[in-house]
Design a protein around this nucleic acid. Structure first.
Length: 295
DNA sequence: AATTATTACAACCGCACCAAT
DNA sequence: AATTGGTGCGGTTGTAATAAT
């Protein structure tokens, strides 16, 4: 449907190669949008037989699709755990923060936002959030101010080129700023200057490889964010923690000490204690996630 | 009302990685 | 050690829907 008469791959690279693409170049396979009937076939098949062995699935399920397409459809749309509908302001905020930490690791980001897929988040980023950051003078790739991060800051990120027209329509809001929606409220506690400062701090040296974040850190991060998702529990813990902090100590600007590791209830402490020796982001990250959780 | 421009998102692509053989 | 199959990932593209002219 998309490229109905084109049996070669869209980019043409595979077509030029002598080795055909494994599954998508076969004649007779359907492409393009899935019909409800196809969805039903795939859903019921996976429910019956389970996920996996995608390459042979179409034949077994009698679908005229390549295995890759089946997998993608299942993973991005049909899985029961997928949350359909608008991305909430909380989710948006989390995406922004995670992207600042992780970059374009969509699957990692998606793994920390229940019910959302990497594809959905990637699309949302490209169509909404990156533009929003640009309109605020922030480079969406580096999260630094456009002026300092890139002298040619008018250039769009590579992934945006196809999405942003040379003459974009002006936003209905003044100065291309989004209206003060609920979504923006998230950032009110964490204003633009803070954001820029943090972006400078973190992206000066942040890079997963050179910083040395490994799976163990990732696990810590994962559990930390899992905890965030369990908002009720977290809020309760946080309130306790706040109370303890207020009663046990005075003004504490050092965020690394915000949570008492021994108490076991300061989630931020897990993060800061585990990451600070490696990343030296201790209090910064800690504070931001506290911001988020404290909404 | 018709046409054109833009946006949003589903889907596809190539490549990389890993495990099994 | 090399090959193969399965899977996952990030980037890109096509198209339907919507807005603007």
């Amino acid at each position: 449907m998309r490229r109905p008469n084109n049996q070669s791959s869209g980019s043409g690279k595979a077509a030029a190669a002598t080795v055909p693409t494994p599954c998508c170049s076969k004649v007779g396979l359907k492409r393009g949008p899935w019909t409800p009937e196809e969805d039903e076939i795939l859903s019921s098949y996976v429910a019956r037989e389970g996920e996996g062995r995608w390459r042979t699935l179409p034949k077994r399920a009698k679908l005229m699709r390549c295995g890759k397409s089946c997998r993608l459809r299942w993973m991005n749309y049909l899985r029961p755990s997928i949350k359909h509908g608008q991305i909430t302001s909380d989710e948006e905020d989390l995406i922004l923060r995670l992207h600042r930490l992780l970059g374009n690791r969509w699957s990692l980001i998606a793994g920390r936002i229940p019910g959302r897929t990497d594809n959905e988040i990637k699309n949302y980023w490209n169509t909404h959030l990156s533009k929003k950051l640009i309109s605020q003078g922030i480079d969406p790739r580096t999260h630094k101010p456009l002026e300092s991060s890139n002298p040619n800051h008018n250039k769009q990120p590579a992934t945006l080129v196809s999405h942003i027209s040379p003459n974009p329509k002006p936003s209905p809001s003044p100065n291309n700023m989004p209206p003060p929606t609920e979504a923006n409220h998230v950032h009110n506690n964490y204003d633009h200057n803070d954001y820029l400062a943090d972006a400078n701090l973190e992206h000066e040296g942040y890079n997963r490889e050179n910083v040395g974040i490994d799976n163990s850190v990732d696990d810590v991060f994962n559990s930390f964010l899992d905890s965030l998702m369990n908002e009720d529990m977290f809020m309760e813990q946080e309130q306790q923690h706040q109370h303890q902090s207020e009663t046990s100590s005075g003004n504490n600007d050092n965020n690394t000490n915000e949570a008492d590791p021994a108490s076991g209830c300061g989630i931020g402490s897990i993060w800061s204690a585990s990451l600070s020796p490696v990343v030296s982001l201790d209090g910064d990250i800690d504070t931001h996630f506290m911001d988020l959780s404290g909404k």
